[in-house]
Amino acid sequence: MLFVSEISFERYFEPVFQPVSFALEAGGLLLVTGANGCGKTTLIRVLAGFLHPTSGNYTCQAPSTAYVGHQLAIKDDLSVIENLRFMRNFLGIRQRSCKAVMQRLGLDRVAGQLARTLSAGQRKRCALGRLLLTDSKLWLLDEPYANLDPEGVGLVDDIVINHLAAGGACVLATLGNHRPGWASSQEYPLISGAGEC
C-alpha cells in the first residue's frame, strides 16, 4: 500500500533524518519511534505529501490518506457535533452517523458545547473522530496518544486495530512505550540527520 525508498528531507540544507525505506502492506502497522527531534513529525508530513522529499521516492496506492497530527483541525467556534458534521459532509460520506461516532469517542455529553470549552484530551478525541468518518485506507497518526487518559489510549488502540483488521494500513509515530496489540506490526526507529537519537 505504501512503498518508501531512501526518502530524505532537508531543512536549512541539513538532513532531518537518515534516509528512510520501508514497505507497508494492507493490514500492516508501522510504528515510527525515536526521541524528540528525530524527525517523526517531519517524516509523517512527508508521507502525507505536505513536504516534498529532498531525495528518494515513495508510492502510495491508497486512494486517500487520513492524517491526525498535532494540529487537530478543530474549530473553536463550532460545537463538537458541528465539527464532526463538517468533517463528514466535507469528506462526502453522509451515511455515517455523527451521533454514533460521538458515542464511540465518549463525547456525547459535550456534543453541543463549543470546541473551545473542551479539555485537551476531549479535543484529541474529537479529532480522532475524523478516522471514524473517513474511508481512507492509509492512516498517518502523529502521536495519537498525546493528552489522552488510559481509557482514551485504549480507544485509539481499538480504532486502529479495527482499521487494520478491515484491511487498512497505518503509520503511527509515537514517543512512548505503549503499542497497539497487533501482530503484523513493525517498528521503525528513526535516526536524526545528525546521526543522534
Partner: peptide, 17 residues
C-alpha cells in the same frame, strides 16, 4: 489564518478535493 494555524488546511489537501 485560522485554517492554517489549526491544521484544517492540511486536511483540505488530504481530502482529495
Amino acid at each position: 489564518r485560522s485554517d492554517f494555524d489549526d491544521g484544517t488546511l492540511e486536511q483540505f489537501i488530504l481530502s482529495g478535493h
